[in-house]
Amino acid sequence: MLSTSNGDLAARWTRLRGERPALRIRDAAATLGVGEAELVALGVGRTATPLASDWRALLNDLPSVGRVMCLTRNEHCVHERHGRFDDVQVSGPHGVVLGPDIDLRLFLSNWRYGFAVREPLKSGERLSLQFFDASGEAVHKIYATDETDRPAFDALIARYRAAAPVAMEISPRAPGAPDRPDAEIDVEGLRTAWRAMKDTHQFFGMLGKFKVGRVQALRLAGEEFSRELPARALRSAIEAAGADGTPIMIFVGNRGCIQIHTGPVKRLVETQGWFNVLDPTFNLHLRDSGVVRVFSVRKPTDDGIVTSIEAFDDRDRNVLLMFGERKPGKPELEQWRALVARIEKQAAS
């Protein structure tokens, strides 16, 4: 276990910032072999304020601060969405935010540390709430913007400031269990259960029932349900949606949060190995090299087939999920199905 009281870490980070001033804090933490939370905690008393871990109450109070920018990321993809915290619902370790702009699925059992962070900039101060898991990895961040009620944001920080210093111990994340051999999977049973699904949320229960990994299931299910595509197909699908205005849903998540964009994407830009959506209320930053496997996937529901494009990295971790815009009780957009069919045809040619 590691502790942020290590004075050597502060010296190492100061030296690293001098050598690479543009390095982002997540990458600095990886370079130094520590959790990002440890670097944030070095600023306690100056740039960082520890927060009490009453996540339910804090989340329920967030509508009071007005519009913010929410950021959720994994190793290869960053999802940024502007809007208000509306319709916040927290029950035990699970929470959802179901506003028209901020749409989140929260897994609060993996939220361990929280800080209010004030970063000095040439143009002023950047204020945020940042939440981390037990390994020190950021699970969710909420940034004040020009549209935020700053007095309300400051009042929220004061209200949830930790009463005592946070004793931080970082536990490296245990590696995930490897998939069972394909020969041990009941493939026909898996396909039968898949065919009987009534809701997309049943998919995860099905994986557990058959003790099969997600990518493993996509490989074994057969073309009735899943087709592997070239890695470039994910980017092609986003570009196609941008070109024809197909409204889509983009899910990006980690162990503590899944963040969802619903709507069109318009301004698509490539910069130094990253493929970006740079729209006024939605930004996406996708590291092309991180996407190793892509599948088109079809799941039966009471509303008809629901089609997705799912991307994974070299360790079979999900990078991004993409759907056509839809609501429960309504069938999938034919425009989205046609888009996926075009992507599959391109891949086959």
Rank of each mutant, 00 (worst) to 15 (best):
V297C: 05
W274G: 00
P151F: 10
S289M: 05
D103V: 15
V319H: 09
E344P: 07
R159L: 08
L127R: 15
L98I: 02
D149W: 06
I260K: 14
E75Q: 15
D288A: 13
R67C: 04
V340M: 09
E332V: 07
N254E: 02
F251W: 02
H82T: 04
I25F: 06
V68E: 15
T301H: 01
T31H: 03
D186P: 00
V297F: 14
L190R: 04
R150Q: 15
V265G: 01
I260G: 10
R180W: 02
K299L: 08
G45L: 05
L32P: 01
G213Y: 00
K122W: 12
I250V: 14
A233G: 08
E270F: 00
E310W: 06
D244W: 11
I248L: 10
D101S: 13
V68T: 15
S3Y: 07
L51K: 03
V40D: 01
T4F: 02
V212W: 03
M1D: 07
A22T: 05
G35N: 01
K266G: 14
L58S: 03
R326N: 04
T148D: 07
T307L: 09
L284F: 14
R232F: 01
L286M: 14
M249P: 02
G136C: 02
S5H: 12
V306A: 11
G189T: 10
Y160R: 05
K209Y: 07
V96S: 10
I260A: 13
F275S: 12
R191E: 02
P172G: 02
L129G: 06
A341C: 13
R267L: 02
I142A: 08
W194L: 12
R20K: 14
H201N: 09
R191A: 03
T49K: 09
F131Q: 04
A241G: 13
E239R: 13
A183F: 00
P247H: 14
K299C: 08
T4H: 10
G83Q: 06
A134L: 11
R180N: 01
G245M: 01
R126D: 09
A163H: 12
P172L: 04
D279C: 07
G99K: 11
Q216K: 07
I185P: 08
P63I: 10
L42K: 00
H201Y: 05
E223A: 15
I142E: 10
I102W: 04
F282A: 10
L234W: 12
